[in-house]
Design a protein around this nucleic acid. Structure first.
Lengths: 195, 195
DNA sequence: GACTATTTGTAGCAACTGATACAGAATAAT
DNA sequence: ATTATTCTGTATCAGTTGCTACAAATAGTC
């Protein structure tokens, strides 16, 4: 009954994600975005409606893959403590990966006044953050119930600390990054928290 | 031998700082900046040379006052532990202040790919961060030497953790802020580190 | 093969970006 | 009062921003 899409939606999203990851939301121009995605304005506004919406779709796509990887690291480890440490390792691996678009992960790069000024983006970021937090709380609580963590260990407060520190890591890596220094720092940080 | 400046340089810088603080470096347009500073293009490019340089001057001016306040909190407390806690309080006070231009402190707002892409800005930010770090290390080391902190306490690793966490705080506050929640979190964080 | 529905590329929009050219005004030393 | 020097406002630059109008191309249905 009608014409079909000439480009592959998913690969276009992936290319867009990489560019947004590289240059951030407001510093990515529509022209550059279209060039990377390999489509024209017509196709773009037809399927993605606006730059804002395209960004949202890209971040969703990015999170779908990254959260799976991080979640795996967290849950497949023998203990919650080991899981958290594995999760931090995946972050450092990302920072070390030579073909990572930017030192700042796409999600961390969304925590910015400009991005959060858009209500739908803000809502998505907030919801996504609490989803990650819930996962970590669940993992830690499970270990606590199993007696692997002390009674006074409170996942509800520790998890926000972990996430806050993680956001700090992305930013600090932007200024200057050295893996072994970061590893030592993270080790002491987690040990202090009892993990 | 020549004409004198018609505007007050310092107040112009202060107004500029507030705007940069509010909207960030790349999202502040020159037009808005000039309007807030109350000067024209002629005066601007004559005294400040470029938007980049103006930003640098504004951040310098901002840091001069803020670092003094934070340093006072850190050093005037009876112990280093109390000093660090007082320092975190000043950050929360800033977040609570109703006429603070933004949840993100101007310095934290400079830790961004776009800003750090400018070599002079990057260098300044890095140098400024290590200055702050040195101050904290000095304070903690003094207490350690006085026997107020345990022998295994290592300021050289703890301070980067504190700063990293602090950067995370600014970002998390951008997403959603609640003072008592933050206070509980910070308290457990610092207690865990032995402060 | 006509009809309808959708996609695609081209051209262009008005608004904004940081920066500059330059004439005129104001200042201080001679 | 003259001169040299600096400051200030206006006009303007070329380039970019996100987005839209619209005609041509492509598909499935009758």
């Amino acid at each position: 009954m009608a014409r079909s899409l000439e480009f592959d939606y998913t690969t276009a999203l992936e290319r867009g994600s990489r560019l947004f990851w590289e240059t951030g939301y407001s510093n990515t121009s529509l022209r550059d975005l279209l060039k990377k995605m390999g489509i024209g304005e017509g196709s773009f506004y037809n399927t993605l409606k606006s730059k804002k919406n395209a960004y949202l779709e890209c971040v969703k796509h990015y999170n779908a893959t990254v959260n799976r990887k991080r979640g795996e690291a967290l849950f497949s480890a023998p203990t919650a403590a080991a899981g958290v440490r594995a999760l931090f390792q995946t972050v450092l691996d990302c920072l070390d990966d030579p073909d990572t678009p930017s030192r700042l992960c796409l999600m961390a790069g969304s925590i910015t006044p400009t991005v959060l000024a858009e209500p739908d983006l803000h809502q998505y970021v907030e919801q996504q953050m609490s989803m990650v937090a819930n996962g970590m709380v669940a993992r830690l609580t499970a270990d606590k119930d199993a007696g692997l963590l002390p009674e006074e260990f409170d996942p509800q407060i520790v998890v926000p600390i972990l996430i806050t520190y993680l956001q700090g890591i992305w930013r600090m890596a932007l200024v200057s990054y050295n893996r072994t220094r970061f590893e030592r720092q993270i080790d002491l940080f987690l040990t202090s928290l009892g993990l």
